[in-house]
Design a binder for these strands. Structure first.
Length: 585
RNA sequence: GUCCUCGUAGUUCAGUAGGAUAGAACGUCGGAUUCCUAAUCCGAAGGUCGCAGGUUCGAAUCCUGCCGAGGACACCA
């Protein structure tokens, strides 16, 4: 399958190279900025004219004079030298037919093994909205790369080995000094069943964490407990395993509800054994050095125009850091997973950290194409990080529950409740709530902060997830009534194509270029914008051109096939975004 | 202090090969339902693209300075 823009670009490129001897980078075709004049356009004459110091309009004339006579595209020159392309209706229809009968792949990523690092929740801490962006964006990119033909591996990269573990151990010791986990002389196995629940941990953690800030002796105790855990004290390890078990089972439920899944549930603890050998390797190769007792890697380069602190691999007390674990993780991903690329979906604030890490990796001779997809904060209407009305951190579960409850109310009040069973109503409401949440996030450039106004997104109107779902649901309902033969999928050009249908066709054939563009920038908002525009084009078509009552049978068939393809295309977009299409709404 | 990101309609955001009339959603105002789901559609009003210079035939886009917001900066993650 060849997207139209690529088809046109190929012709352009051939002309440019044979008649103008310029490199192919000039052969770019884009969607027209003036839909009233054209479908696609190229600005290459303007750009090239500058370089060749000639008149852009004359250059455009020369250029299209070489356009192959058998290509039916209608070409015009406008303004200072824009070259405009208008496709024939037949071209649109056959492009769509071709698109339907072939599978999309992106040559750059097809057959690559790509590791995605996202989610990154911490054991024993409740998931809050801060984890939402990483999870939603990461999941979306993973699905996109998979759709484009890559072999993807999603790793949650659990925070399970830091100081918070020592804090929890000390906290529990204070509450239950009699538990066998704290008794150094305890002989025999520890209880199989966890004596604590996740709820216990979630209340304990903020308390002990706050207490440590006040009390430096307590903080020191926690540090020691962490160290003992890391050195393998059996009672602590047994207790720690309970933390992991209760946390993971809760996380699995939450991620499952969100539609986010991982292939690996690896945590930082996985690399514990590998950290000292890793430091030794860096030292052995003289990449690392000792400075003030700590082992560091200098990663500054002469070309830097900003301060670039060294990476600290090992603290002077012998402890390891985030950086050490991250490097060990990279090593495994390259050596064992044979990763061709690693994509990190992590908070923007960690940009410097990852730049340091990858410089260190380069210095030791690991050459991994890596991509840091940094995302901004999710802010409340006040422009500050999103909080509950009471001012606390909002738990993910509460957020989803709120949205679901609103959706449910809407289903009941708007007389849209199709005699739903309680179960179907709940499920539909949840699908709608999640669609609103995900689309609100993904429609924004991930790099930027965005403002999440819960009241606004609970209205479910306009540029929202539910709008896209609604369009899909209407098509589904329409197709069900039409009793369409679904084995056949191709469209046959009718004697005349209504304007709204032509516009819809144009949006449908953009699918491959939209996917490619989204991949190129790792920006789901590009895909979301296109999906929204497709749904808009459909809604317009739906209002202007009644399908089922169409009397011209060829035109009716054409319209139905168009609806069918719109549904399929919309579903491709929504599947990547992670939005379910309800049966009814 | 140094560096990074950002400043576009009343609001939230799109908009990088420098290019045609700066787009969308919400909100406001006006209209559409004997007809496939009105969570829909159509129309209107609304902009000195933070400010000031510069480069260019042409700048929201590139350069410089200033103002404003957020963030990062060696033993936390």
């Amino acid at each position: 399958m060849q997207p139209v823009n690529i088809h046109l670009a190929n012709i352009l490129q051939k002309i440019l190279s044979t008649h103008f001897e310029v490199d192919h980078s000039f052969a770019q075709i884009q969607k027209s900025d003036r839909p009233d004049l054209a479908d696609y356009q190229t600005n290459c004459a303007l750009v090239l004219a500058k370089q060749l110091k000639t008149n852009p309009r004359a250059l455009a004339e020369q250029l299209i004079a070489h356009w192959p006579k058998d290509d039916p595209t209608h070409i015009t020159i406008a303004g200072p030298g824009f070259i405009n392309f208008k496709l024939t209706d037949q071209q649109l229809v056959s492009t769509l037919n071709q698109q339907v009968s072939s599978t999309f792949t992106n040559q750059e990523v097809a057959n690559q093994t790509i590791v995605f690092d996202y989610g990154g929740p911490n054991v024993a801490k409740p998931m809050h909205v801060g984890h939402l962006r990483s999870s939603i964006i990461g999941e979306c990119l993973k699905r996109l790369y998979q759709f484009a033909g890559a072999k993807v591996i999603a790793d949650i990269h659990l925070g399970d080995w830091g100081t918070q573990m020592g804090m929890l151990i000390v906290g529990l010791h204070q509450q239950h000094p009699d538990w066998p986990y704290f008794n150094q002389n305890h002989i025999g196995p520890y209880p199989q069943q966890s004596p604590i629940t996740l709820a216990d941990l979630e209340t304990l953690y903020p308390k002990i964490s706050a207490a440590c800030k006040e009390d430096s002796d307590l903080a020191e105790k926690c540090r020691i407990a962490t160290q003992e855990l890391q050195q393998g004290r059996p009672g602590y390890l047994a207790l720690w395993q309970h933390f992991i078990d209760v946390s993971i089972s809760a996380m699995k439920k939450e991620f499952n509800r969100l539609g986010v899944s991982f292939d690996c549930w690896f945590g930082e603890s996985r690399y514990q054994e590998k950290l000292q050998p890793l430091v030794d390797l860096f030292r052995g190769k003289k990449v690392a050095e000792i400075c003030d007792g700590a082992t560091i890697v200098e990663v500054e380069e002469p070309s830097d125009n900003k301060p670039m602190p060294p990476v600290i691999l090992q603290k002077k007390d012998g402890g390891f850091l985030y950086a050490t674990t991250d490097l060990a993780t990279i090593d495994e991903r390259i050596q064992d997973f044979k990763a061709d690329q690693i994509i990190y979906v992590v908070d923007n604030r960690q940009a410097l950290h990852f730049e340091q890490i990858f410089r260190a990796a380069e210095k030791i001779g690991w050459h991994v194409p890596w991509t840091f997809v940094g995302f901004g904060t999710m802010n409340g209407p006040d422009g500050k990080p999103f909080k509950t009305r009471a001012g606390g951190v909002m738990k993910l579960k509460d957020l989803i529950d709120t949205l679901t409850a609103t959706a449910k109310e809407r289903l009941l009040n708007a007389e849209r409740d199709h005699n739903f069973s309680d179960q179907e109503r709940q499920q539909t409401a949840e699908q709608i709530g999640l669609a609103a949440l995900k689309f609100a996030d993904l429609q924004h450039d991930p790099k930027q902060n965005y403002q999440f106004d819960i009241d606004k997104f609970m209205r479910f109107e306009g540029k929202t997830g539910p709008y896209l779902q609604y369009a899909a649901v209407r098509i589904k309902s329409l197709l069900a009534k039409a009793d369409l033969n679904t084995e056949k999928t191709s469209l046959q050009l009718p004697s005349s194509v209504p304007n709204a249908a032509r516009d819809l066709l144009l949006h449908l054939i953009r699918l491959p270029e939209v996917l490619n563009e989204t991949l190129k920038h790792n920006s789901p908002n590009i895909l979301c914008e296109a999906a929204f525009q497709l749904a808009q084009a459909f809604s317009r078509f739906y209002n202007e051109a009644p399908v089922l009552t169409e009397t011209d049978s060829a035109l009716k068939e054409f319209k139905l096939r168009l609806c069918q393809q719109t549904y399929k295309t919309l579903k491709v977009y929504l599947d990547i975004i992670g939005i379910d299409i309800p049966a009814r709404m």
